[in-house]
Design a protein around this nucleic acid. Structure first.
Lengths: 202, 202, 202, 202
DNA sequence: AATGAATGAGCATTCATTCAT
DNA sequence: CATGAATGAATGCTCATTCAT
């Protein structure tokens, strides 16, 4: 009897992480369409067969890579937000942490933007959208609800506002990802957090 | 004397437009990486050789498609902005026209997002960024300068603010492009234009 | 009733000649495999459709081009040989005229060498061989027979010797065609004609 | 430290040799322009992808094939020449070995002639010319210098004479390659070696 | 006589994937 | 675990050829 799912060994996990990081770097440098298994393998000094061995096809690798990026960023933001007590400071922390993480991991976001192109069907795109945006918007809504409940915020609708905040962060980030000289990121971070904090506060 | 560039014939222009539109539709439906000459040709009932005949390679087709999208949107926004007299209304018109055009041409923007993935080198990405963003940010800056000169606006720096406004529009649009049910576009349009108009007015 | 073969009009002949010359130049410059109808047409300022109109396919154009080269060279050599009275001088004239013509029309022979590659089947290759070599060897044999009959030449077999003379000319020419600096053509011409005249004379 | 070039495995080398031989045979039979990866693969019962796997593009395959031909012939000639003691016999051995090798490997030279057509730019042609001719002419010059130093040869200039000898061999070979019935190869071999030996001897 | 739009077959090349070792 | 040989489908692109105008 073959067990259907062995728990991954240590070396297995290490390899996967190593391959994902190499993939992200290659995608950031050369673009998704130019990133083949062979290209990733070359950068690691392994063979492309080994990548196929550790991942269940290209789709699995890409999906894992995306989750890695989003999880790391999500964890960083969560940490910063939880360090703040009141809702206004939490919102400010959310926005500024988002920009901070992006600024320190530009390659990840260059890759992420490219990876959007790896989804073909509308269903995949919607699934990716939910993976990427839903946790973010849900986090923002939670902050908004805390503020509203505690009487610190007022006069807006949490769901719509979460899309606005997240969108503003992403849109500004995008310009910077494409051309770092086009946007002054710290300034944009300050301005956006001020604007939105003012907007939602009583 | 041989003229270096004959003016294109009527049928030439019609075919190019037809192929570009088909390409945009196919990209929107199936994604850039799945969009081959064969796929586009199949949808049009022509051969892929004909596409190669009318375009100087895939890069030319993609570039032409991008310019088509951006030019059409730019023209629409310009028209709406110029219909307004004072700077505040111009800014509001810019934001709302951006969303209106996107709402009516979702496929174009689904395609546009995918086409980001068609650029491989950092140089190409920066070039694309400038093609896409520079005219938009320049237009916004012009509006801001008018408002500042006429004493209608005050207390901000036009260059940074233009990146913020454009980024907020794009980021919100992006969520809607990926999943139309995730964002209430008209509400986002109103909210954003109010926020930014308030921010820049004296 | 449609007449099977109209006699070619003046403009028809002029066009064919013009196209053949352009084809030879393009082949010499860019190689046979890089020489498309479109390339030839571009150099002439006409369309590739017109080439197809005047020639019965690519094979016809190539064949015509080869005949043009060989006829021109053959006529020049014949003229030089006939200007000489005795067989030894005729042989010398043949060899030196061969080199002279080649030296003044290098592009034609660059093209000719490339055109060998246009024949696919062994039958075509043999046919080309006969077209190219038979008249030359026949001409040489005629000179040899004159010399033998008049008692000027002796001690060899005309058929084999004609292949040797023609081969020596062609082989030396070939090195010069590939790299003009590799061979001193006038010196080779003198040396070869001296060697062969001595060999066949009594 | 990563070694820049691993030594090829046994199977790798065997495949390369197999593919090169099949390529030469196909080129000889059908001509260079008709010889596609698909055609070569079909003859071997493998896929064209495998050819692309073992060779770095068509240019690499062609270059390897040419070197294979020239190296094999060069080795054979060298062996025959070195078996002779004095310069006159070395020269005779060179000429006769050249013809012998050609006679036994006609397909290789049919292919070689066709492969001239695979070079497009003048630079490539000159490079090929040097690859093909320089070692041959250098070998001949070495023989000539030995003869001159030992007082066996006299009255000629080694460089020019080497081009003449090589050219005569190639030109006669060419007629035979195109049409084996057009030339009596053994007779030509004897005649040429006699003529040149007489010419260079004191 | 000449054009240019259109075709369709063919090309080298790329690449995720499979699998015996 | 890891390799490297092998596959086969797909891709962008070229080009001689056809034909209505």
């Amino acid at each position: 009897m073959i067990p259907p799912k062995e728990k991954p060994t240590f070396i297995e996990e290490a390899r996967r992480k190593q391959i994902i990081d190499a993939a992200l770097q290659t995608i950031a440098e050369q673009g998704y369409t130019q990133t083949s298994f062979a290209e990733i393998a070359k950068g690691l000094g392994i063979t492309k067969g080994l990548i196929a061995y550790h991942f269940d096809g290209k789709h699995d690798l890409i999906t894992s890579a995306i989750h890695t990026i989003l999880n790391r960023q999500g964890a960083y933001i969560k940490e910063q937000v939880e360090a703040q007590e009141d809702a206004g400071n939490k919102l400010q922390a959310y926005i500024q942490a988002s920009f901070e993480y992006i600024a320190q991991n530009r390659a990840h976001f260059v890759a992420l933007v490219d990876l959007w192109g790896s989804f073909t069907s509308p269903e995949e795109k919607i699934a990716f959208s939910q993976t990427a945006y839903d946790p973010c918007r849900a986090h923002l809504q939670k902050i908004f609800r805390i503020g509203l409940e505690q009487g610190e915020f007022a006069g807006f609708e949490p769901q719509g506002m979460s899309a606005l905040v997240q969108g503003s962060i992403d849109g500004v980030m995008l310009q910077w990802v494409f051309d770092p000289q086009a946007v002054d990121l710290p300034q944009a971070s300050r301005e956006l957090s001020q604007m939105f904090v003012r907007r939602v506060k009583k």
